Amino acid sequence: MSERTTGKYMRKMGICALWVRHWTHTTTDSDFDLRLQNILDEQFSPDMANAVWVSDITYIWTEKGFVYLTSVMDLFSRKILAWVLSRTLEAKNVVETVQKAVGERNGVKPKVFHNDRGCQYVSDEFLEVTREMTNSYSKKGYPWDNACIESFHSLIKREWLNRFKIENYDQAYRYVFEYINTF
């Protein structure tokens, strides 16, 4: 049935459509965007190791619900320096991943640490652990700024995780470990 015919029937029956107004965010912190600068600016080929690290969180579906993979990648070598699989999206998981990455590089910290604008990456805990690094944030609603780590997460799902029916956290952990630490 066409939209016009549906409209005719609705008018005959005295029915009219209700339009729901979209919610509009009206109060903003005008200083918030100024603090979240994009230092990386899609320059994905640094000249040396530990110049730029990128990080992101992805969801992995299990039969018991989602688990969350947080990864840190060195853009120079494209190596995953550290990863944490968790049951929650708390900032402490991002902090743990950053600390593991610094440990992996024997205490060497990157000049620039780039990520998206997720609440975990603007939390006080994260800012404390990255205070000696220059934080860089993707532009609002623009995933291409973080394309390298987004691409890795897409790859691990497409090439490996989507092959299995993952039942729980432990099984997801094993599959992620096999992909990152074994391949």
Rank of each mutant, 00 (worst) to 15 (best):
R105Y: 09
E132V: 05
L81R: 00
T88H: 11
I149Q: 08
K165V: 14
Y121A: 02
T26P: 02
F126S: 09
T130C: 11
N38A: 08
V20A: 10
R4P: 05
K12Q: 12
Y179H: 09
V122W: 05
K157R: 06
W61E: 12
T28R: 14
G118R: 12
E90V: 11
L155A: 07
H22M: 07
V95F: 06
D145W: 13
N135S: 10
F177V: 14
R158D: 07
A172K: 04
K109S: 01
V122E: 13
E63Q: 13
L75G: 05
F164R: 09
I156E: 12
N115R: 12
I57F: 09
L18T: 06
I149T: 07
T26F: 01
V129Q: 09
D29Q: 10
S30F: 00
K8Y: 15
K100V: 07
D74R: 00
R11L: 11
N168E: 11
K109C: 04
K109H: 03
R131Y: 03
T97L: 10
S86M: 08
Q37D: 10
F113I: 06
E167Y: 01
A91S: 13
N115F: 12
F177C: 15
S71W: 10
K157I: 02
R87L: 15
E3R: 15
C16N: 15
M48C: 14
K8W: 05
N181A: 14
C16D: 07
R11W: 11
T182Y: 14
A172Q: 05
F152I: 06
T182G: 00
L18I: 14
A17H: 04
E104H: 14
E150Y: 14
M10D: 04
R78A: 10
R117K: 15
E63D: 15
T62L: 07
T134W: 00
Y142E: 04
Y179D: 03
V112M: 09
A17C: 11
Y121I: 06
K157N: 14
R11D: 14
A147K: 02
N181F: 11
V94Q: 11
P110F: 01
T58V: 03
L36N: 12
F113T: 03
K140S: 12
F177K: 15
W83E: 12
I166M: 03
W83P: 08
R174Y: 01
S86Q: 06
W19F: 10
L155T: 11
A49L: 07
H114N: 13
D31N: 13
K79L: 08
N146I: 10
A101I: 15
S86A: 15
D33Y: 00
L34W: 10
V52A: 02
T130H: 14
V98R: 00
L127Q: 09
F32H: 10
G103W: 01
P110H: 02
M133V: 14
N168T: 07
A17G: 06
